[in-house]
């Protein structure tokens, strides 16, 4: 095949990609430039509110991810083996939080778990009050972010050839060991990719949180809420918070991207 020469040496897809990258990068670059040129950046970066919100965001999103992965892997594995109308309905249900506006998700959670909610009395009897607590922040994050993980992990498990697992089992290796030695390593890039998406959604979660958990520094005020609160008084502080959030997110996403490519190969070896 002879290679066509394109203007700028790029095929159409490449040029559109370039335009797209510029479209995404420009606002982020502008954000950084404005934040850096703002003289109060350092003060804002080290202020109590910023550090408190950052800590809360990292802790809550970490707990959310532990739960999402812990429950999501068995769910994804189960769904990857099912077909038929029933499982298609489940698939759609699992995706519902993706299409809900987050504020609606928060409202719906209040209707279920709030003081006046369907489970309100039962929870109250058990001494559990969720609204306005850190637990509510975590529940909101799980609600909106879990579908990203489950979807990706399910596709990952579906791509694992059935024969490999069957062979492994005929060799007398237990299903549990087969799962960890074959299915998980082969689905690894999808699992980690799903985790990255899911975590990104959790850390940026805003609407459901402010609805269901409220906004109180140290208890429920995560980074996105702190940014919006800062907008009420000081755009400079809001910019600083935004820059931290973007930077922290980039670091986590890069680490996860590395994990997806690196760990997949050696762990995939059969012993």
């Amino acid at each position: 095949m002879n290679r066509r020469t394109f203007p700028l040496g790029l095929p159409p897809g490449g040029i559109i990609t370039l335009v797209y990258i510029a479209f995404i990068a420009l606002p982020l670059i502008a954000l950084f430039i404005r934040a850096i040129s703002s003289y109060s950046l350092w003060d804002s970066l080290t202020s109590d509110i910023t550090l408190t919100a950052l800590r809360l965001s990292l802790i809550t999103s970490l707990i959310s991810m532990i739960i999402v992965v812990g429950a999501g892997i068995p769910i994804a594995r189960y769904l990857s083996r099912r077909s038929g109308p029933f499982s298609r309905v489940i698939d759609v249900l699992i995706d519902v939080p993706l299409v809900l506006p987050p504020v609606v998700a928060g409202l719906a959670m209040l209707m279920a778990f709030g003081r006046m909610g369907i489970l309100g009395d039962a929870l109250d009897t058990a001494g559990i009050r969720l609204p306005f607590t850190t637990a509510a922040v975590i529940l909101a994050q799980i609600f909106v972010s879990a579908p990203f993980f489950i979807r990706a992990a399910k596709l990952g498990f579906q791509a694992v050839p059935r024969e490999l697992e069957e062979i492994s089992q005929t060799l007398g290796i237990s299903p549990w060991r087969t799962f960890w030695r074959i299915a998980v390593p082969l689905a690894w890039p999808s699992i980690v990719g799903g985790l990255a998406l899911s975590w990104a959604r959790a850390i940026s979660e805003f609407g459901a949180t402010i609805m269901f958990a409220g906004n109180l520094s140290g208890r429920t005020q995560t980074m996105p809420l702190a940014i919006l609160s800062a907008m009420e008084s000081d755009v400079g502080a809001a910019l600083a918070l935004a820059v931290i959030l973007v930077a922290a997110s980039l670091i986590v996403l890069f680490v996860l991207a590395l994990a997806a490519t690196r760990a997949a190969v050696p762990a995939g070896r059969l012993e």
């Binding site: 209040l110 709030g114 006046m116 609204p131 306005f132 402010i210 958990a213 409220g214 906004n215 109180l216 520094s217 429920t220 919006l228 609160s229 009420e232």
Partner: peptide
């Protein structure tokens, strides 16, 4: 328990 970004959001939390 919560500091809302506008007064209508305060009202909503009470109404709910």
């Amino acid at each position: 328990v919560s500091e809302e970004t506008n007064v209508r959001a305060v009202l909503a939390k009470v109404q709910l």
